[in-house]
Amino acid sequence: MKSLKFDCRLVFEQNKWVLLCPAFNISGSEWEDLKTGLIDFLSQNYPGRHIEISYYFDMSSIPKWFHQYQNHYFNGKFKLTT
């Protein structure tokens, strides 16, 4: 089974999570919605693959003034087989 890896940027804009990947963008109003949307999209478009998505939160989604208190929101990784 072939493997695929994506490095994506995660933003929060207009009250939605948006995952910006090189080949696609996925959004969801809740975190669970984002995951559901991602699984559905990958299953349809990349069937039969091991997929690893590394995401990095973009701090520009948080008001600049708060960066002086904490410079990091979260990064993470999704792994799934479609």
Binding site: T36, G76, K77, K79
Partner: peptide, 11 residues
């Protein structure tokens, strides 16, 4: 807490 629909990892 989160639903386990996809394997997640944090470093």
């Amino acid at each position: 807490v989160e639903k386990k629909r996809v394997q997640q990892k944090i470093s």
